[in-house]
């Protein structure tokens, strides 16, 4: 029979970071999450806890989430010190409770980084990522006037590597898991995605310089090859993209 039949209920103790606003001191608070089906996702478990908090006239835990299928990049929290929790290549919304055991204590905290201000509880402000993209994470073409799509052949291998990098969902787990709170994997993924394609080459140099500068301005730290970002990235984006970013950046400086 399928493993779905093995679902059961577990009881957990949650320690959740509660912080009313960006300038207020936060603290860990303890909650019981009882009768949690192991088929639930982590966020569905939080839904159940929140329903109970609301019915008891207490403030529910604020957390960002939207698609709940691992692609929008909106959700994310540190679970027992790991970005998006213990499962490799998994966003928080795709983490299921079958990976926890009865009577576990689960510590839930927001992304912590100077560049990501806490808005409330587990919700952080990641607009710095948008600013980095605005600095050059695009190819400058306007709508209309583009040539036929098959005019420029792209070697399949280049297209595949570009796609590997373009899979980034902009969730911020790389920053949250890095001891330096560096955004190099995020920037490296975008620089690689576009530099690997012939369409992106004309602006490759200016893009690498502008995005790195904006990254520094936003208060992200430097990369010291800790490789935590690659280990925790829910889309398993490789740090070879950071190496490629470094190459593109050096090349751009030499021009």
């Amino acid at each position: 029979m399928t493993q779905q039949n093995s679902s059961k209920n577990i009881n957990l103790t949650l320690k959740v970071w509660r912080q009313v606003g960006p300038n207020v001191k936060g603290r860990l608070e303890t909650y019981q999450a009882n009768h949690i089906s192991t088929d639930m996702s982590f966020l569905e478990m939080l839904d159940v806890v929140n329903e109970e908090l609301i019915l008891n006239h207490r403030d529910p835990i604020a957390f960002d989430h939207d698609c709940r299928e691992g692609i929008c990049g909106m959700c994310g929290a540190m679970v027992n010190g790991r970005a998006h929790g213990p499962e490799k290549g998994t966003t928080l919304c795709q983490l299921h409770m079958r990976h926890f055991s009865d009577q576990d204590t689960v510590i839930i905290e927001p992304w912590r980084s100077r560049a990501f201000r806490i808005i409330k509880d587990l919700v952080v402000d990641r607009s710095a990522f948008d600013k980095i993209i605005q600095a050059g994470g695009y190819i400058s073409v306007s709508a209309g006037g583009t040539p036929d799509a098959n005019v420029i052949p792209v070697p399949q291998e280049a297209a595949e590597k570009a796609m590997d990098a373009a899979a980034c969902i902009g969730c911020g787990a790389c920053v949250a898991s890095c001891p330096n709170a560096s955004a190099m994997l995020f920037v490296g993924a975008k620089v690689s995605h576009l530099a690997l394609l012939p369409q992106g080459i004309p602006e490759a140099a200016i893009r690498a310089l502008a995005m790195v500068k904006k990254m520094d301005d936003c208060g992200f730290g430097n990369c010291t090859n800790e490789t935590e970002c690659e280990a925790e990235c829910p889309k398993e984006i490789s740090i070879t993209n950071i190496a490629r970013l470094n190459r593109e950046y050096i090349k751009a400086g030499l021009l």
Binding site: Y138, N150, P153, G200
Partner: peptide, 17 residues
């Protein structure tokens, strides 16, 4: 045409098309 020019990494055949 527009999306390819923007750098959307569509799937390609071995010949690059």
């Amino acid at each position: 045409d527009q999306c390819v020019a923007q750098g959307v990494p569509f799937a390609r055949e071995y010949g690059g098309l």
